[in-house]
Amino acid sequence: MTSGNLADVAALFDGSRLTMGRRLAGLRKNALAAAVELTPAAISFYESGGKKPSAATVAKLAMALSVSPSFFLPDGSPHAPATAHFRSLRSTTQLARDQAEAYVQVVAEVSRVLERHVDFPPVRLPVRPVGADCADDTPERAAAELRAEWGLPEGPIPHTVRAAENNGVLVVFTPPQSASVDAYSVSRADRPLVLLNPAKDDYYRQRFDVAHELGHLVMHTDEEPGNNIVENQANRFAAEFLMPRAQIADLLPTRADWPRLAKLKETWGVSLQALLYRARQLGTMRDVTYRNAMTTISTRGWRRREPGTVLSVEQPSLLPRAVELLPPDLLAAESRIPHHLLDVVTSRTPVG
């Protein structure tokens, strides 16, 4: 980029874009300041808009963050507040949360650009708020309502990611550097997002993750994320969404019948552990039987990798197909997102 263009970027510099780029890189202000030979206070001024960087500083910032200088230009889109639902706030560092939330901004920006050129399915995601003090079967009823709203047939859901995408929910994999953060979801006014961990290459657990995050999007738009009560409600939602009581209760064994459980696993596309959880939840299996079965799961090393058919994880297709319809480089030019991140956002498979 010429010095004249750098001067233009410096004049129009958007501090929020610097914050976004820094968080995407997983850097604190002091680390970025050291990389560009400035003070953390200077970085704070640039991010808050209290001061504009020089053209030379713009070039240094772009190089340090592996973005083009034009990345720092205003994008003109409102950044509405959105709550990200992380599984555990205690085990997720602030730096990792910041990085994950910055990636959400990237996905939202990519989506906005693509929707200028390609029609996406309308969002059909009913909101059924469930408070932390809920003591009835509201999570299960919310799951049943979503299946009905989406017109899902009785029995196993063939493809959870496709069902979500067909109803306007964006599903993407996160970058490899975010593998420490489990699957999470974000309720946005324009389009809800489900973000999947790229390191979790387990077909059965991924399906439960998608259902769990759908539960958050349906039930917890206003609830504080990360607490055990909210997470348990999302698990109950996921269990009913994937294994409706009326359709699976009579199929579940009362004891740890492993051959029978293995067949149910393949039929319903859920893990052995999810089936055991469901059997205890529905009262088919006694607590002591469930605990003994889970001990066996641990002893045999099945918590990490269960026996059975190894299937590839379900693949998102909404964003990848939209990109295929556009001229090469149009998305990069209009979004100004670095190519390496665009590759992750629009990939059908985890990028390693």
Rank of each mutant, 00 (worst) to 15 (best):
T160F: 01
A100T: 13
E145Q: 13
R141N: 13
G155E: 02
L146G: 07
Q105L: 10
P139Y: 07
P126N: 07
V127F: 12
V123C: 09
V123D: 09
A142D: 10
C134R: 01
A108I: 06
R147Y: 00
T138D: 04
E140D: 11
E115D: 10
T138S: 14
G131N: 03
V110F: 14
A100Q: 07
R147T: 00
S111L: 05
V110N: 03
L152Y: 07
A102W: 03
A102Y: 04
A144P: 01
E154K: 06
T138M: 12
T160M: 08
G131E: 08
F120M: 14
L125R: 00
C134M: 03
A108Q: 15
V106D: 08
A142N: 09
V123N: 09
E145R: 09
A148G: 02
R116F: 05
I157K: 04
R112S: 11
T160N: 03
C134S: 12
D137R: 14
A148R: 13
A144I: 09
G131R: 09
L152T: 00
P121W: 05
T138K: 10
V110G: 06
A135Y: 03
G131V: 02
E154T: 10
P156Y: 05
A144K: 12
A143E: 06
V127Q: 15
A100I: 13
P158W: 04
L152W: 01
D137T: 13
E109S: 10
V118T: 03
A142W: 02
P139M: 03
V130M: 00
P139H: 07
G131H: 06
A144V: 10
P153Y: 02
P158K: 08
R116M: 08
L146I: 09
P122A: 10
L125Q: 09
R128N: 10
P156T: 04
W150L: 11
P158T: 14
A132M: 08
A148F: 02
L114A: 09
P126W: 02
A148S: 14
V104E: 13
E154N: 09
Y103T: 03
V106T: 13
V107Q: 06
D119V: 04
D133S: 14
L114P: 04
A143I: 08
P121D: 11
V118L: 07
A143H: 11
A148Q: 14
G151F: 06
V127D: 13
P156K: 00
E109H: 15
D137V: 12
G155M: 09
G151Q: 08
L114Y: 06
H159R: 10
R116Y: 04
P122W: 02
P156V: 00
V130W: 00
A148P: 01
L152F: 01
E154S: 12
P126A: 12
F120D: 07
R124F: 07
A148C: 02
S111Q: 15
P122V: 10
H159Q: 09
P158I: 10
T138E: 04
E109G: 08
V118I: 14
S111I: 07
A144G: 13
R112F: 05
A148W: 03
V123W: 01
E154C: 06
V104C: 14
E154A: 11
G155R: 05
R116H: 12
Y103C: 05
D119L: 01
T160G: 04
V113K: 03
H159K: 02
R124K: 15
A144Y: 01
V104I: 12
A108L: 15
R141S: 11
E101R: 04
S111H: 03
R116T: 08
